[in-house]
Write a protein that binds this DNA or RNA. Structure first.
Lengths: 340, 340
DNA sequence: TCTGGCACTCGACTGTACCGAGTGCCAGTC
DNA sequence: GACTGGCACTCGGTACAGTCGAGTGCCAGA
C-alpha cells in the first residue's frame, strides 16, 4: 500500500495529462512535462505499483496509462485543490444571472451558465416544494365545478392544479375556501402540511366540507406525496465533445438517463449542506451512467438548501475546475434567491 | 423529365428498402423484393434516369442507390399514402393521454408518447399565449411593493411574473387593480390586448395609475411582445439509433439546434390549419438540421390551432408512418383540450 | 422497349510487413 | 537500497497488395 509522495505525484501528473490530452500517458512524456526529478524508468516502476493498486491501467500492453475510476477518486480526495475561479468566470456568472425576472428565468439562466462554463451537461433542480413554504394559495373558479388551485411558494415557485369539485360551489364559498386555506397554510412548510390540511377539512363549515375535502386531496396528492420536482437541463451537445472516445462510444445510455427525471433527481437532488458531491464512474448507482461522472451540490438562500444543481460529464473531466464552478454558481444562485 | 409509372415505382421501392435496411439498394435486390415485372437491367436504366434527375444517388461507384432529399420529397408528395395507424398505436395514444391532470401533464405525456411511437425526437409547443385568451388575472401581494401577477389562459396555461411597483400599494388598491384588469381583459385574446391594456391605464383612478402603468408594462412586455413560448422535448436518445450513420456521423449540430428554443419554435410553431408540414433535409432553413427531417403539425381544440407539435429524425425515416402518428397525436391532444 | 451478357469499378476485407511508443526487467551506479 | 540506462519485447496503427463480390454501364439481340 505504500504510496509515497512521488507515486502520488505521478498519479496526479497522469490524471492531469490525461484529462488535458485525452491520450494514454507514458513514462517518458511524463518526466518531460512535469518536474518529477527522476528518470522514466523510475516512473515506470511507480506506475507498475499504481497499476497493481488499481489506480491506473493500460488500455493495451504497449500503451501509456490511463487513470481508473479509483485513481480519479484518489486524485479528487487527496491530490487536488479546488481551483479558484478566474475573474472572467466570476464576471460571466454575474453578468449571466443579474436581470433574471422570475424563478423560471433564474433556473434557465443558471443551467445554461453551468453548461457553458463547465462545457458539460448541466442540471438544475427547481427549488423543491418539500423544502418550500406556502406564501399564498389562490383559487380561481374556472366553472362552477372547477377550480384552478395556484400555489405560490416562498422560493418563487408557482404551481397550479385543476380541481374537479364534487358539486357546484358558489363564488362566495370559493372566497371562504380561499381565506380558510390561506389562514391555515401560509407560512408552513409543505412537508409539514398533512396534519394542517387534515385540520382544514375538519374546521370547515359543513357546507364547505365537500369542496374542501377534494381541495385538500389535490393539495396533498400533487404537492406533497407526489412531491413534484422540476428540472432544467442544458448542454447535451457537450456530450459530443471528445469525439465519442468518452462514454465508451455510445451516447445512448447517457441520453436515456438524462430523460428520466427520477434519475436526475437522484443524482443532484440529494444534496447535503455545503457539500459538493462527486460521483465518479462506477460509483454511480445508475447503470447507464457508469461511464460518467457527476459533480453536484445544493443551493438555497443563506445556509438552507432548497434544491440541487450539478453537471455530468466524462470521468475524464477537470474535477478541480468543475467543482469550483459548480460551487460558485450554487453560491450565486443562493444569493439571488435570498434577495427574493 | 419523363418519369413514367415504372420509374416512380422504382423510386418508391428504393425509398422503402433504404428506409428499412439503411443500406444502398441495388437493382438485383430490388427486383427480388418487389414485383416490378422487369429485369434488373431495365431497373438499372430507370435508375440511371432517376439519378440524372437528382432523385437518387450513388454513395460510391460500385454501390447501390440511395434516395436524395429530392427523392424523398417526391416520395412524400406523390408516392406514399398516409399509413393508417395500427389498433395498437391507437390504444397506446388513448392509454397514454387519458388521466392527464393538467396542461403540464398533457404536454409531457404527449411529447413522450410521440417520441415513443415514432422512435424519434419529439417536440411539443405549449399552447401559444398569442393564441390564447385571458381567463383570469390574479394579483398576489408579495410585499407592499411587489406583486405576483398570475395569468390563467383559456388553454390552461398559467404564467406568472413578478411586478416591482414604483411605490407601496395598499391591499385594497390591489383588489381594485385586480378587478379592473379582469373586467377589461378577461375573454380577450392576448394578441389583441395592447389597446385594451392602454385603455386600462387611462381609465384607472389617479391613485392607481402608477401601479397600473407598471402592471401593464409587465403584461405587455412579457406576455405579448416577448411572446413567451414554451416547449417540451423528448426522445433525444432516439438520435443514436442507426449507429451514427444518420446525421453524417455527428449528433453535435442536431443536439445544439435542439437546445435553441427559437429554432424549435421555427420548426414546429408555424403550423397552419390541418396541414402536416414535412421538411426534408436541405429544405430545412437551419443549417444544423440539414441532415434531418421534420414532420410537424398544429393542434388545438376543434379546428383552431393553439400550438404545434412534431418530430425530428434522419431524412431516412418512415414518412408515411411518422406523418400518420403525428397527425393522430395532434388530433387526440386537440380533443383533450376541447374538453377543457 | 426490354433483356441477357459482359467488362469494369471500387469498397470491404484479409494478410503481411513495418514502425514506434511504451513497457518490464536487469545489471550497474550512487 | 533507491535510482538509472540499456535492451529486448509487445502490440496498436498504418501502409500496401491482393482478392472478392456487389453493383454498374453499355451493347447487341430479341
Amino acid at each position: 500500500m505504500g504510496l509515497d509522495d512521488r507515486k502520488l505525484a505521478v498519479l496526479r501528473a497522469i490524471v492531469e495529462d490525461y484529462v488535458a490530452t485525452q491520450e494514454p500517458v507514458g513514462s517518458k512524456a511524463l518526466v518531460e512535462r512535469h518536474q518529477l526529478g527522476v528518470s522514466p524508468a523510475t516512473v515506470r516502476n511507480d506506475m507498475a505499483v499504481l497499476e497493481e493498486e488499481g489506480y491506473i491501467r493500460q488500455p493495451h500492453t504497449s500503451a501509456g496509462r490511463v487513470p481508473t475510476d479509483r485513481g480519479y477518486r484518489l486524485f479528487v480526495d487527496r491530490l487536488s485543490r479546488v481551483k479558484p475561479l478566474s475573474p472572467a468566470e466570476r464576471r460571466a456568472i454575474e453578468r449571466f444571472l443579474v436581470g433574471a425576472v422570475d424563478l423560471d428565468d433564474v433556473v434557465h439562466r443558471t443551467v445554461r451558465l453551468l453548461a457553458q462554463l463547465t462545457r458539460q451537461v448541466a442540471v438544475v433542480q427547481y427549488p423543491s416544494l418539500a423544502r418550500s413554504s406556502v406564501r399564498h394559495l389562490e383559487l380561481v373558479p374556472i366553472s362552477t365545478t372547477r377550480l384552478m388551485l395556484v400555489m405560490i411558494a416562498d422560493t418563487g415557485r408557482v404551481e397550479q392544479r385543476l380541481v374537479e369539485l364534487p358539486a357546484p360551489v358558489p363564488a362566495e364559498d370559493v372566497t371562504d375556501l380561499r381565506r380558510l386555506a390561506n389562514e391555515k397554510l401560509v407560512g408552513s412548510r409543505l412537508s409539514d402540511t398533512p396534519p394542517l390540511v387534515q385540520a382544514l377539512v375538519e374546521e370547515s363549515a359543513p357546507h364547505l366540507r365537500g369542496a374542501m375535502t377534494t381541495l385538500s386531496t389535490v393539495l396533498l396528492e400533487t404537492l406533497v406525496e407526489r412531491h413534484e420536482e422540476r428540472l432544467a437541463l442544458a448542454g447535451t451537445a457537450n456530450l459530443t465533445r471528445g469525439g465519442l472516445l468518452d462514454f465508451q462510444g455510445s451516447l445512448r445510455p447517457i441520453l436515456e438517463a438524462l430523460e428520466e427525471e427520477v434519475v436526475l433527481l437522484k443524482l443532484i437532488g440529494e444534496a447535503e449542506p455545503s457539500t459538493t458531491r462527486v460521483l465518479i464512474g462506477d460509483e454511480n448507482e445508475i447503470d447507464n451512467l457508469r461511464a460518467a461522472s457527476v459533480v453536484s451540490t445544493g443551493y438555497g438562500p443563506g445556509t438552507t438548501i432548497v434544491g440541487g444543481l450539478g453537471v455530468l460529464g466524462p470521468t475524464r473531466m477537470d474535477y478541480p475546475g468543475t467543482i469550483a464552478t459548480v460551487r460558485a454558481v450554487a453560491r450565486y444562485v443562493g444569493e439571488l434567491l435570498a434577495q427574493n
